[in-house]
Amino acid sequence: MTILRTLTALAALGAPLLAHAAGDAESGAQAFRACAACHSLVAGEHRTGPSLATVFGRRAGTVEGFARYSEALRQSTVVWDEEALDAWLRDPAAVIPGNAMRFRGLPEAPARADLIAYLRAVSAGKLAPPKTRALPDLKAVDTGQRVRAIGHCGDTYRVTLGDGAIFPFWEFNLRFKTDSSARGPRHGEPVIVGAGMGGDRAQVVFSAPQEISAFIRDACP
Rank of each mutant, 00 (worst) to 15 (best):
Q30W: 09
A25Q: 05
T48C: 02
F56N: 06
F66I: 13
A53G: 11
T54F: 13
R47Y: 10
A53M: 14
F56V: 07
A36W: 00
G44H: 01
A67M: 10
C35I: 05
V63L: 11
T62M: 10
A43P: 08
A29S: 05
L52Q: 13
G57I: 00
R33L: 08
S70K: 12
A67F: 06
V55G: 04
E71M: 14
S70I: 02
E71P: 08
P50T: 02
S40L: 08
P50I: 08
S70V: 03
E26M: 12
V42A: 12
V55W: 10
S40K: 01
F66V: 07
F32S: 03
R59W: 04
G65P: 07
G44Y: 04
R47S: 05
C35H: 09
A53F: 13
A34Q: 15
T62S: 13
A25C: 06
H39M: 04
Y69R: 07
R47W: 03
L52P: 11
A34P: 02
R58D: 03
V42M: 13
R47V: 07
F32D: 04
G49R: 04
F66H: 13
H46V: 07
A34M: 10
Y69Q: 14
Q30I: 12
G49V: 00
T48D: 08
F32T: 00
A36V: 10
R59T: 00
F66W: 06
F56C: 01
L41N: 04
G28Y: 02
V42S: 13
S70T: 10
E64R: 14
T62L: 05
F56P: 11
A60Q: 09
E45W: 01
A36L: 03
V42K: 05
S70F: 09
A43K: 14
E26L: 04
G65M: 04
G57C: 03
R59P: 00
E45A: 11
E64A: 14
F66Y: 14
E71S: 12
C38Q: 01
A43V: 05
A67Q: 12
R59M: 00
Y69M: 01
V42P: 04
G61Y: 08
C35R: 11
A36F: 03
C38N: 04
R33A: 10
A29Y: 00
R59H: 00
F66G: 05
S51V: 10
E26W: 02
A34V: 04
G28R: 09
E71H: 04
